[in-house]
Each structure stands twice: as structure tokens, then as C-alpha cells.
Simulated assay, not measured.
Amino acid sequence: MTHSLHHLCGAIIMSLAGPTLAVDAYPARPVRIIVNSAPGALLDVTTRAVAQQMADNLGQPVVVENMAGAAGMLGIRYVKTQKPDGYTILATANTLALAQATKLEPGYDLARDFTGIGMMNKAPLLMVGFSAQPDKTLPQLIAHAKASPGSMSYATAGIGTSTHMAAALFVHQAGIKMLHVPYKGNAGAMPDVLGGRVNMIFDGANSSGPYVQDGKLRAFAVSSPKRLPAFPDIPTLAEQGLPNYSFYVYMGLTAPAGTPTPVVMRLAKALKAAQASDAVRERFRKDSAEAGNMSPEEFTEFLRHDLQRNIKVVADLGIPKE
């Protein structure tokens, strides 16, 4: 074989191996996780706990950057435009599948612009209300709402938020009409719930649980298909006449569409290792959350299914888009 032919064959082999070698070297520098919420929010706290453990597994720093704004869409839109190389990824909650269904101009398309890495965790919500109201159980509340359509109300953290969709899904499946009273966050709504000025709200167990234990709020149901170990006496919506009801606040990691599969799988491996660490498991326990157990393919499909469910609820209930 001539020298020139040797040179040509070597060049071809190197060109074919180039992308593989680049992927095998991943990560060769720090990884950024963009969090589309404010510092100190539950998503931010959760992501930082996970990122620290992922860094140990990846052998590179994992830097968490907050990019809140535009109801979480600022961070989503930013990551969508980044190079799909695994060095800039997104940490988001239900917002990714909610904003596209509830906003007039979300500025992204979930199926086209993102691929799932994995679900960090998920946590159910408690459906709670004023402890002195006449309805003592969920069936009684539903019967009351059916007897007087529109006379009862529910509070949320705002249109298009997780607590709004949890309540809207309940109203949809129960076949009732209730007045939606949006607030700027669940914390802003809670005084009116405690005072009986609105009938109910869906809220995190870590924040409303103490009120339930003190008798200041009545818990009508838990949003997961199974009861919470921390609150075994609170029945699920599913066991109280709404067999298909299931809602979780979930948090996950996604990457820009086109990120190489080996890179996505490497990030998923690091996430799984983080979930198994004592520090992250304790963080989840404090938040009444459980680790998400999904492959990148499963999480991608989950997100797309959640989006379609949200689109249907918004359309069926005539929820106005902002």
C-alpha cells in the first residue's frame, strides 16, 4: 500500500472516530444547569442538591444558574437556543408541559425543542380547605358544587401553574363548576383559604401539612394514586369517586433537541447516581417527594403525554390563555 493510500485511510478512520471520541470525552468541562425559577424556590433547592452529587459522578463541576422570569419561560427559551452538546441543560418542573398549553406565545415547542434526561423527583399535593366549612369529605364537597354550580371557589398560585392544573383536572373529572381565584403564589392564597374566603386549594404536603395537623385546615384528599406514608389517614381522590385522577408536581432535567444520545445517557447515569445518594434522598424525604425512575426515553414520552393532557383540560374547561 502506498504512503498516500495509508494517509488517506488514516484520515478516513480518524474522521469516522472523531464524533465518537468527542462523546467519549464528555464531559470535558463544567456543565451548566439552568433553573427556570428564583433562588430558594423548591426547584432551585432540589436542583442544587442533585447537581452537587452529579458533579461527583461526572468528574466535572455542575454549575446551577437561575433564570426566572416570564412565568418560567425565560429559562426554557434560553436553553432551547443553546448548542445541543450536553453542556447547557434545563431543570424545570411541570412548567415545561404547562406553559405551552396555557400561554398564547410560549416561545418553544416541547416535542421539537427538547429531549428528556430524567425526572429528578415527584411529589403529590394535598387538597385542603377551611376546617370549619360544612363539607367534611370530598364527596360532600362535590355534591355541594353540583347542587350550586359556580357558588364554590378554589385558589391557585396563578393561571397555568401546577396548583391551577391540579385543581382544573379535579373540576374536569368531577364534572363540576367552581370559581377560579388566582393568586401570585400559593403563599399569597393561604390566608384566604385559612379564613374560609375560598373553599379549597391544592398545596404541597410540606407547607399545608402542618396546618392539617393543627386542625386549621381540612384535608379532603391527596392527589397521588396511593396514600402518602406521612399522612396515611388522608384518602386519595382516586378512591373517592375519581378513579383516573393522578397529579404530581414533578421536577426533571431536559436537554436541547439533537443532543447526542450517548451524552444524554451519561447525564441520566449521573442523575441516577445522585438520586441514590444519602444527601439527595434526605432532601426528597423532607419534601414528601420520591425519586423519579424514568429513562430518558420514558421521561421524553411522559412530558409529551403530560402536555397533551394539559391541552385537553385547557380546551375542555375553556381556560383563557394569557
Rank of each mutant, 00 (worst) to 15 (best):
P106G: 01
T95H: 06
M73N: 06
K103C: 03
I89T: 04
A93K: 15
N94M: 14
L110W: 01
E105H: 15
K103Q: 14
Y87P: 10
G69A: 12
K103I: 03
V79A: 01
V79N: 02
R77M: 09
G86N: 01
D85R: 11
A70R: 15
R112A: 14
V79E: 00
T95S: 09
T95N: 09
Q100K: 04
L98H: 13
L96W: 09
Y87M: 11
Y78A: 12
K80L: 11
L96A: 03
D109K: 11
Q82L: 14
T92K: 13
P106I: 01
G107H: 04
A111S: 14
T81L: 15
A101L: 12
A111I: 07
Y108V: 10
T92A: 12
L110S: 01
I89K: 10
A70V: 09
L110I: 09
A91I: 07
G72A: 04
N94I: 09
A91F: 10
G107D: 02
K83T: 13
K83I: 08
I89L: 07
L104P: 03
T92E: 04
E105Q: 14
Q100I: 05
K80N: 02
L96R: 10
G86I: 05
T102A: 12
V79G: 02
A101N: 06
Q100F: 02
M73R: 15
G72P: 01
A93L: 12
E105W: 13
F114A: 07
A97H: 12
I76E: 00
G75W: 05
A97Q: 09
Y87N: 08
L98F: 10
D109E: 04
L110Q: 02
A111L: 13
I76N: 00
I89E: 01
